[in-house]
Design a protein around this nucleic acid. Structure first.
Length: 431
RNA sequence: GUGGGCGUAGCUCAGUUGGUUAGAGCAUUAGACUGUGGCUCUAAGGUCGCGGGUUCGAAUCCUGUCGCUCACCCCA
C-alpha cells in the first residue's frame, strides 16, 4: 500500500517541537520591534525575473535551484529562494521611499531552494531577517549585527561566532578580482580541480576552499583590504570600531565571501560550531546596488537572514550538552481538566468546560469516554493544576468536586460557585 | 548533479559463523485498583523499507529499487 510522505527536503514541525520554533519567533519579533523594524509579508512566489535580476544570472541558485513554474503562457513564477529581493520589490512597488526614504523591515517565513537536503539545509526552509533600506551609515551595518546577536543571546544560544569582512564596492572589487585572478592563474596547477574551474566562475570562492593546497596558496595571495577604495576602507574601519564600542566580539575574516552578487562593502556571517559542515546560522551584509539593479533609485541598504532550522539545530545541540535548560516541549498545560464519570454527566461537564473557557480559563475534557482512572492519568500527564470531577453523586446534589493535583486535596462546591472559585485564585489568560 | 553511510515495534536501538514462536528500554492503551493521577506488576503491538535471487532454511548473504542521512558543488 502506498503511503504519503512529506516531500523530499521538507519537514513537518510536530507539536512536540513547536515550543522552540515559537520561542525563536517570539524573541525575534520582540527584538526586531524593539529596534524599530516593522513586519512585512510578501508572497511566497514572485515573477521569476525578479530573482534573475537580483541574484545574478550565473549564480547556482538561479541556474539550478529555483522552483520555477509557468503561470500562464507568457509568465513564469518562482517560489522565493530568499526574501531580500521581494522586500525591495514591495518597497519600490508602493514607492515607499517617497514618503520616507529610510525604512526598516523584518520578515519571517518559508523560502525554497531545490537542492540536495543535508544537515540544516532543506528545500523548504525558514528564514527570519531584516532589511534596513535607504541609508549608508556604517553604524547601521553594526545595528543589524547587534540585532542578530541579541536574538541569539536571548534564546540562550551560546558559542556562536561573528565573522565579518568587506568585499568592496563596484569601484574596487573588480580591480581586486582581476589581480587575484591573475596571481591565482600563475599557480593554477597547484589548485584543486574544483578551484581551477572556479578561476573563471567565482574567483573569490577559492579563498574559501577547504583543500590544504588551496589554503596555502590563498594564504599568500593579496588581501582585499589592500585594494579597498578609500570609501570602502573608512566604512570597514567604522564598522569594526563600532562593533568594539558596543562590545560585540568578531573575527575579521578576509576570506569570507558571499554567494549572492548584490552584496557590497560589509558582509558577515554568524556561525555555530556544533552544526557540522554548514555552520552558518545567520548571514548578511550591505547591498548598495540591489535597489537600482531592480529598477529603483540608487540607495544603500543592509540586511541579514537568520536560518531558523540551523538556529534551532544549534540550540538543541547546546541544550543536549546542558540539560539544565528545559525545553518545555509541549508548551503550556491547560489549567483545568474535567473528568466525567458516567455517560449522563458528560453534558454537564461540557457545559462547565465552555463556561470556564468563556472566562479565559484554559480547560480540557475527555472525548474518548474513558474510565475515570484513564482520565486522571491524562490530567496528570498534561500537568494540570486542577481536576474537576462530576459523577452521578455530584449530579444528584448539584455539586462538583475540585481536586488540587499538587496536594490531592478535594473540595466540593455548588456548580454555580465554580467559576467564582477559580477566578478568585487564578488569573485568566489574556487575549 | 557527485560520493559515503543507514533502513528491525510509535521512538532509541540489540539480534551470534544464515537455524524453531524476532528481543530490550522508553512511549501508548487496557487491567491488577469495577468513582480518582504519580510508584509497582501484567498484557497488547512487527508484511524485519520493497521486489527478485542463493539456500532444506534469510532480519542476516547477493542483486535491483525506494526512502532517509551525511558530505561535495552551492548556500541560510
Amino acid at each position: 500500500m502506498f503511503s504519503f510522505k512529506a516531500p523530499r527536503g521538507t519537514e513537518d514541525i510536530l507539536p512536540a517541537k513547536w515550543a522552540l520554533w515559537r520561542k525563536l519567533e517570539e524573541v525575534g519579533r520582540q527584538e526586531f520591534e524593539l529596534c524599530g523594524f516593522y513586519e512585512i509579508r510578501t508572497p511566497v512566489f514572485e515573477d521569476t525575473r525578479l530573482f534573475i535580476r537580483s541574484l545574478g544570472e550565473a549564480t547556482d541558485i538561479v541556474e539550478k535551484e529555483m522552483y520555477t513554474f509557468a503561470d500562464s503562457e507568457d509568465s513564469s513564477i518562482t517560489l522565493r529562494p530568499e526574501s531580500t529581493a521581494p522586500v525591495m520589490r514591495a518597497y519600490l512597488e508602493y514607492e515607499l521611499y517617497k514618503t520616507k526614504k529610510f525604512q526598516k523591515f523584518y520578515y519571517i517565513g518559508p523560502q525554497f531552494r531545490k537542492e540536495r537536503p543535508q544537515a540544516g539545509r532543506l528545500r523548504q526552509f525558514h528564514q527570519m531577517g531584516l532589511e534596513a533600506v535607504g541609508a549608508s551609515d556604517p553604524l547601521l551595518d553594526v545595528e543589524t549585527v547587534s540585532v542578530a546577536t541579541r536574538i541569539f543571546d536571548r534564546i540562550g544560544l551560546k558559542g556562536y561566532k561573528v565573522k565579518i569582512n568587506s568585499i568592496g564596492c563596484e569601484e574596487c572589487r573588480p580591480v581586486f578580482r582581476s589581480i587575484l585572478k591573475e596571481k591565482l592563474c600563475e599557480q593554477e596547477k597547484g589548485l584543486c580541480e574544483l578551484c581551477q574551474s572556479r578561476l573563471n566562475r567565482n574567483v573569490f570562492r577559492i579563498l574559501d576552499c577547504k583543500n590544504e593546497k588551496c589554503k596555502t596558496i590563498s594564504y599568500h595571495m593579496p588581501s582585499i583590504h589592500d585594494y579597498l577604495c578609500e570609501g570602502c576602507q573608512s566604512h570597514a574601519k567604522a564598522v569594526r570600531e563600532a562593533l568594539l564600542d558596543i562590545g560585540i566580539p568578531y573575527i575579521a575574516d578576509a576570506h569570507l565571501v558571499r554567494g549572492l552578487d548584490y552584496y557590497t562593502k560589509t558582509v558577515y556571517e554568524i556561525t555555530h560550531s556544533s552544526l557540522g559542515a554548514r555552520d552558518a546560522i545567520c548571514a548578511g551584509g550591505r547591498y548598495d546596488n540591489l535597489i537600482s539593479d531592480i529598477g529603483g533609485p540608487s540607495i544603500g541598504s543592509v540586511g541579514f537572514a537568520i536560518g531558523m532550522e540551523a538556529t534551532i539545530l544549534a540550540l538543541e545541540n547546546v541544550m543536549e550538552r546542558n540539560k539544565s535548560v528545559s525545553p518545555e516541549v509541549y508548551g503550556p498545560s491547560p489549567l483545568i481538566y474535567i473528568v466525567s464519570i458516567g455517560e449522563e454527566t458528560r453534558k454537564q461537564c461540557f457545559y462547565l468546560l465552555n463556561l470556564l473557557r468563556k472566562a479565559n480559563l484554559s480547560a480540557d475534557f475527555d472525548y474518548e469516554g474513558r474510565s475515570p482512572k484513564a482520565q486522571m492519568r491524562t490530567a496528570n500527564k498534561l500537568g494540570v493544576k486542577y481536576v474537576i470531577v462530576i459523577g452521578p453523586d455530584e449530579l444528584a446534589c448539584g455539586d462538583v468536586k475540585i481536586k488540587v493535583m499538587e496536594t490531592s486535596e478535594e473540595i466540593s462546591l455548588k456548580q454555580n460557585e465554580v467559576l467564582r472559585w477559580f477566578l478568585n485564585r487564578e488569573l485568566p489568560l489574556k487575549c
